[in-house]
Structure formats: structure tokens, C-alpha cells
Amino acid sequence: MEWSETAVTAVAAFRGKHAEAYVELESGPDGAMVDIGGWLGLEESVDLQALLCCIVNSLEQGYRLSLDLSTVTYISSTGVGALSNALVCARKKGAVLAIARISESAERILKALGILGYFQSERYDE
């Protein structure tokens, strides 16, 4: 798939603003992948929330978006909120949001806050 210009611009803006976190848009035969990594503190997470909604809204209905969280070193509760909000955006859009890979620390937090189960997990599907 080809990413929309809006999504590409939003990701570039995020990367320009936050040095300790990064977001990368990837495409594969099975759909779209967003690689999110680094330090997702309060400030990064506030912007991540808007960014993820922008990315999800740029998808076509019924599309599947996978998140690669394997390089997340730290995720704050605001970051978890950003992911759950992205999930809501995806549901409204009729898109599927799945977690392809996740770091141990992020998995621990998402589990502790009871959010992990709401995501489709490709890792478990395999």
C-alpha cells in the first residue's frame, strides 16, 4: 500500500519534534505496519495519540494496521492511552489494529492496564 501524504507528513513532524522516540511507516504484502520505538514519555505520547489517529484515519475501511512495538524502551500511561485511542479510531474506521511485535516492558504495562487483550496480536496468531 501507499501511505497518504498526510500520514507521511505527520510522521515527519513527530520525528522532528521528538529525538528519543521514533515512528516509521512500513508497507508489506499483508497490509500496513507502523514501527514505534524508543522513549514514549508524557510529551511524546501526547503527540503519538494524534499521530496514530491520523495514520488510522488515512487507511481504507477494513484495512489491517500492524504495530511493531518491539523497540519501545519505555511507555507511559499516556502512551498506553494513545494506543487505546488508536484502537477506538480503528474501530470507528472499520480498520483492524494489531500488535505484531512488542517489547517486554511495553507488554508488561499494556497487560497491567488491561489493554493488551483488546489488540489483535499477530505474534500469538502465528
Binding site: S77, V80, G81, S84, V88, R91, L113, G114, I115
Partner: peptide, 19 residues
Amino acid sequence: IASESAMWKMNIELADANM
């Protein structure tokens, strides 16, 4: 955090129910 977490879940479940 507990109230935020409950709110997130509620929002997701509402979105699910709506869907």
C-alpha cells in the same frame, strides 16, 4: 490510572458495541 484504564476500556468496548 485505574480510572483512565477503565475509561480506555469503556471507550474501546463502546466502539466495539457501536461497530
